[in-house]
Amino acid sequence: MISPIGWIIIWIGVVFDILGAIGLVRFPDVYNRLQASTKCVTLGTFGIMVGIFLLKGFTPMGIKALICGVFLLFTSPVAAHALMKGSLHFGTKMWKGTVVDEYGKDKLGGEQIDKKEG
């Protein structure tokens, strides 16, 4: 009974992983790419780990998979947050369709929005 559920969760995780990678290619600027890919790839890999735990049960491999999933859930948002702040301070412009930039107004002296077409 547990085994088909584990396989289904692994499949859902892999599908979300590939969707995150497609989002990394399709979206127009750094911030949107970071949004799409971080969310999808984190939940996808966490799903793979939970699936392995359900397939293997309380063996060494299953418990290690669960620990790895929890580590991933803690480290991945922090890494994304650091990259986002880094690229804001690096001066990467935002996409021309961006509507508002409060951070640039408060900290960087003006909105960091790309004005030219393209």
Binding site: L19, G20, G23, R26, A36, K39, L43, T98, V100
Partner: peptide, 26 residues
């Protein structure tokens, strides 16, 4: 909530017109 977020991102990725309107709010 995480699962809902992923469905949302999947919709935006697969939609042919990329329905996004990004911005930084406080």
């Amino acid at each position: 909530y995480m699962f809902k977020a992923n469905i949302d991102v999947a919709y935006r990725v697969l939609h042919p017109e990329r329905p996004i309107k990004p911005g930084i709010v406080k």
